[in-house]
């Protein structure tokens, strides 16, 4: 548990809570990132700009943070690319099928006391834990 970082995690979480609050208060939108991403290519034309701006904000936020604290997050190197790409495909496919990801269900949905979102979040975590167990300790595909 040498990397245990509850305070920065909680402070980051509070910022995310403030972000979803402001978005709902001002625009009436739920900050579900998979839905925002999917709509970039599927929504009506008038509905696309805000999606691109929100996604650009995410990238800009990380960029600013990295300028201020360059050693806080370093990109991972040498992870098996097949594992990464297959994982990404399943994340995209599953998020569409479940109609949301960790931001939409895990934060906004649970905050709205949605039973669906609570069930989805429990499944995200249990399936994720089972998968990491298999990848790391059974197949030993990554450290």
């Amino acid at each position: 548990m040498e990397n245990f970082s509850p305070y920065s995690a909680m402070a980051g979480g509070a910022l995310i809570g403030i972000s979803v609050t402001l978005l709902l208060l001002f625009t009436g939108r739920i900050a579900g990132i998979s839905g925002i991403m999917n709509g970039v290519f599927n929504a009506a034309k008038s509905d696309i700009i805000w999606r691109l701006l929100f996604l650009a904000g995410l990238i800009l936020g990380a960029f600013i943070f990295q300028l201020l604290l360059p050693n806080f997050n370093t990109p991972r190197q040498n992870y098996p690319i097949l594992l990464l790409g297959t994982g990404g495909f399943l994340v995209g496919f599953g998020a569409r099928m479940a109609n949301g990801c960790i931001s939409g269900h895990g934060i906004c949905g649970i905050a709205n006391l949605s039973i669906r979102s609570i069930v989805a979040t429990i499944l995200f975590m249990t399936a994720g834990m089972a998968t990491v167990y298999i990848v790391r300790h059974v197949l030993v595909l990554s450290a």
Binding site: G12, L53, G61, I64
Partner: peptide
């Protein structure tokens, strides 16, 4: 506002790792 919300969210994801 939408851009600011994105930036806050991005900083939150960075700070929380």
């Amino acid at each position: 506002i939408t851009l600011i919300c994105g930036i806050l969210f991005g900083i939150g994801l960075s700070l929380s790792q």
